[in-house]
Simulated scan of single mutants.
Amino acid sequence: MDLFHDLKSNRLVSLAKESGYQGLDTLEPPPQGWSQGVEVRRKEVPFGVKLFKLVATNCNIE
């Protein structure tokens, strides 16, 4: 299983049960910034995953 995986921007994720699911592309950056990551849940995955945003020196965003 590949632990490093790109999520498509239209995927639905949840930060908490109370907030429900929202599009990945609508997530606001966490208070500590993307470099620390944020744990999200997906309906199809039975465990939380840590989400990071990586920006390369050539400005490509992963």
Score class of each variant (00 low, 15 high):
Asn58Val: 02
Ser9Ala: 13
Asn60Thr: 14
Arg42Ser: 04
Ala56Arg: 02
Lys8Gln: 13
Asn10Tyr: 12
Tyr21Ala: 12
Leu7Thr: 13
Gly37Ala: 09
Asp2Asn: 09
Pro31Ser: 13
Gln22Arg: 09
Arg41Leu: 08
Leu51His: 07
Asn10Phe: 14
Pro29Cys: 10
Leu27Ser: 05
Glu28Lys: 09
Lys8Val: 10
Gln22Glu: 07
Thr57Ile: 12
Lys43Trp: 12
Val40His: 00
Thr57Arg: 05
Lys43Ala: 15
Val38Gln: 04
Leu54Gln: 13
Gly23Tyr: 14
Gly33Leu: 02
Gln36Ser: 09
Gly33Glu: 03
Gly20Asp: 09
Gly48His: 14
Tyr21Pro: 06
Val45Asn: 07
Leu12Arg: 05
Asn10Gly: 11
Leu27Phe: 09
Pro46Thr: 08
Asp2Lys: 04
Val40Tyr: 01
Thr57Ser: 09
Lys8Asn: 08
Phe52Lys: 09
Gln36Ile: 00
Cys59Tyr: 11
Trp34Phe: 04
Pro30Val: 02
Leu3Arg: 07
Met1Thr: 05
Gly37Ser: 01
Asp25Leu: 10
Ile61Arg: 01
Val13Thr: 02
Val40Asn: 00
Lys43Asp: 12
Leu15Ser: 06
Leu54Trp: 07
Leu12Ser: 00
Thr57Gln: 07
Ser19Met: 11
Asp2Trp: 11
Lys17Asn: 14
Ser19Asn: 15
Ala16Ser: 15
Cys59Thr: 06
Gly23Cys: 13
Tyr21Met: 12
Leu27Tyr: 10
Glu28Cys: 08
Asp2Phe: 11
Pro30Gly: 06
Val45Tyr: 10
Trp34Val: 03
Val45Arg: 06
Glu62Asn: 05
Thr57Lys: 08
Met1Leu: 08
Asp2Met: 11
Cys59Lys: 13
Ile61Phe: 04
Lys43Leu: 12
Lys43Arg: 15
Arg41His: 15
Tyr21Val: 07
Arg41Lys: 15
Val38Lys: 03
Trp34Arg: 04
Glu62Lys: 04
Gln36Val: 03
Asp25Thr: 07
Gln22Lys: 14
Ser9Thr: 04
Phe4Ala: 11
Ser35Phe: 11
Met1Phe: 11
Arg11Val: 00
Ser19His: 14
Glu62Gln: 12
Tyr21Trp: 07
Lys8Ile: 05
Pro46Phe: 09
Lys8Glu: 05
Val40Met: 03
Asn60His: 11
Asn10Ala: 06
Leu51Gly: 04
Gln22His: 07
Val55Ile: 14
Phe47Val: 06
Pro46Val: 03
His5Leu: 14
Leu27Ala: 04
Asp2Ile: 10
Arg42Ile: 06
Asn60Lys: 10
Val13Trp: 02
Val13Asn: 02
Gly33Val: 00
Lys53Glu: 10
Ser14Asp: 01
Phe4Asn: 11
Ile61Pro: 04
Glu62Cys: 09
Pro31Asp: 15
Ser9Val: 03
Gly33Lys: 01
Glu62Asp: 08
Val45Gly: 00
Leu12Glu: 04
Asp2Glu: 14
Leu7Ser: 10
Ser35Tyr: 02
Pro30Ala: 06
Ile61His: 00
Asp2Cys: 12
Glu44Trp: 00
Thr57Pro: 02
Leu15Arg: 04
Leu3Tyr: 13
Phe47Arg: 08
Leu12Ala: 03
Asn10Glu: 13
Lys43Val: 05
Leu24Val: 02
Asp6His: 13
Phe4His: 09
Glu39Arg: 07
Lys50Cys: 13
Asp6Lys: 12
Ser14Cys: 05
Leu27Gly: 05
Lys8His: 06
Glu62Arg: 07
Asp25Phe: 14
